[in-house]
Design a protein around this nucleic acid. Structure first.
Lengths: 345, 345
DNA sequence: AGCCTTAACTAAACCGGTTCAGTTGCCGAT
DNA sequence: ATCGGCAACTGAACCGGTTTAGTTAAGGCT
């Protein structure tokens, strides 16, 4: 049998209530008694029962994450594993756990949130992959679930946000290519339903416009390798193809780069390429992929912290802004038409 | 306020206990009363409180999955997202949830299991990535946690296993290459600490020996792209290099194939290649990658089912054997030295 | 001395289920 | 007619905490 609070009370010669006060740091016991209770609790090896505590305090001591993606696409995305690992570093320290749901079919996303809320599985959820006009915000308000969002949605949201600006890195990449002498710089974007698909495109377009360059070389893809190749084929097949492509993530950049090479193009001699995410394999590609190094581990850890603080009422209401990821220049980007310095291969 | 069992009892004019019996299908109420109770419960919109039920029945109504991998490696593995999605299809139907833990640092794997057990977060865990002499089996016995293993470990295990034989697909791939005329067939294996790393190597070696061929062309890697490239470089740099390489997964095959192409080899003309997992992008590579199509979705669903049955005492004790994945032949494998029929490119 | 306040604590209710120990009434067996 | 046995149900204990209401004793103030 496990040691209960009553065992501690009996051993310390006090009532259950006093033990509860002592253990939770509340007023109602003298310092002497508190110390005595704490030491007997430690001596008996008492640990609180999560279930009992959940019932009486109406809390789950768990956070939820609903991942709504085609699992096949999800499989190639390096974001979530690191992100989840980051969440866990925070949660484990604070005695919380993560309840993960993968919503594959349409409509199962909403029902996942409903179920988590209705069963009281979690005290709050982390919203990732924010979309334009994201219906989840109203849903969570209806359900009364706490939440934190990754980046601030463009529609009003009462939830705190943990932000990692992705426009700066994209702008940096575009400017880097312009500085190298490129004038026809394309963008293979992610789905524009996602705010990070949209914001990356906008950053690309804005930087080009600031430099007086055209913004016609855009193709929307879905962050997956297959559509990355298709978008690349589209761009390279145009009458006046780009000399550089800024991809919205490494997967599409990798696939696009491989496609271009198979078409006989030399990289970066004939085509410069940049990615986003700084995936582990990016530096091992030939040529190594210039990329923007986001930090999902830190993002996850920060998001969990903000949400826990929010639940405990210690969050100050301000959005947390993490350092913007920076461009890491590697061999895949150089001056156009052989004016590069690194050599092609 | 939510509707409780007492509300239902009052409305139906019976005691709390009777309602509990009726709702759980237990003896102790007449059929008439049961129907009346059920209909009033439905009318009031009653749903059980997970927390109250957890406390009184000492169950968590949740399963655990501890993923112990370098998160960077994990990011490129398409297995887990689909696998988790499969688990969920079963769990959601039965009112269970999944508690996910990512163990990154050494030692955190064991403490993760300890925490899940000690806090009573889960009723059982799914053991994936089985290792030779897997210490988790003894650990879980000590903790008194139920479990199911993916494939049967070579050491005695009291837990049911859900098996998906991976030797058959590898043997098929090797035989396929032999039938095409290859005699120097290499294997880039995954970590040999994993039983699926070991079994794939054994299948490769056995099939070669059955055909009287040498088994010296083996390099161990870690299932990651980077080591896949290194292993490929090792093999291709040997005095008598292989004409075909059987990789233990698609990631290494993809990276290896790209490396070989960058070295000027034509695939499949100069080198045939096969993968494992049948990743979504495999069919879009140039050439499309011959691979072995495992089914993580189904595996996850089956594993969860077996574990839930085990918890409910309705599991028959037999291991569940799922259909062995088969080889899907694509453009990356052909007869050696230009005697291929599909053409190179 | 008498009254009021407050700190320190106890007893009991409560969260919402499950389950055990009785109680009642009906039936068949003797 | 009487007893035993069982089905059908009730009341209360129980899971292990939190929280509220109430008790006691000490100290401050007039």
């Amino acid at each position: 049998m496990r040691v209960t609070i009553s065992d501690v009370a009996r051993a310390a010669g006090v009532s259950k209530g006093a033990v509860s006060y002592a253990l939770n740091g509340q007023a109602g016991v003298s310092e002497d008694t508190r110390r005595r209770i704490l030491s007997t609790a430690a001596a008996l090896g008492w640990t609180p029962s999560l279930r009992a505590r959940s019932l009486s305090s109406s809390k789950a001591y768990a956070l939820g994450l609903v991942v709504a993606r085609d699992p096949r696409l999800l499989g190639s995305d390096p974001f979530f594993p690191s992100f989840i690992a980051g969440i866990e570093t925070t949660l484990a320290d604070r005695g919380y756990s993560l309840v993960l749901t993968v919503a594959t079919k349409t409509g199962s996303e909403e029902s996942s949130y409903r179920r988590l809320a209705h069963e009281g599985r979690v005290d709050g959820v982390i919203l990732s992959d924010m979309r334009t006009n994201d219906s989840r915000i109203a849903l969570l308000l209806e359900l009364g679930l706490a939440a934190v969002t990754l980046n601030r949605p463009e529609t009003p949201s009462p939830f705190p946000a943990v932000c990692m600006d992705d426009t700066e890195g994209i702008s940096e990449a575009v400017q880097h290519l312009i500085d190298l002498g490129h004038t026809r710089i394309a963008h293979v974007g992610g789905s524009q339903h996602y705010i990070h698909g949209l914001s990356r495109r906008n950053a690309w377009a804005n930087t080009l416009e600031l430099n007086g360059l055209a913004t016609d070389l855009f193709v929307e893809a879905d962050f997956g390798a297959v559509q990355g190749v298709a978008a690349t084929a589209d761009l390279l097949g145009r009458a006046n193809p780009p000399t550089a492509i800024v991809y919205a993530n490494d997967i599409m950049a990798t696939a696009g780069q491989a496609y271009a090479q198979q078409q006989g193009l030399r990289i970066p001699h004939d085509l410069s390429v940049t990615g986003y995410d700084n995936t582990e394999y990016a530096q091992y590609l030939t040529p190594a992929l210039s990329s923007i190094g986001s930090d999902p581990l830190r993002w996850g850890s920060a998001a969990a912290q903000v949400l826990l603080n929010q639940l405990e009422g210690t969050h100050d209401g301000e959005d947390v802004v993490l350092p913007a990821p920076r461009l890491i220049t590697r061999g895949s980007s150089a001056a156009p038409h052989g004016r590069n310095t690194t050599g092609s291969q």
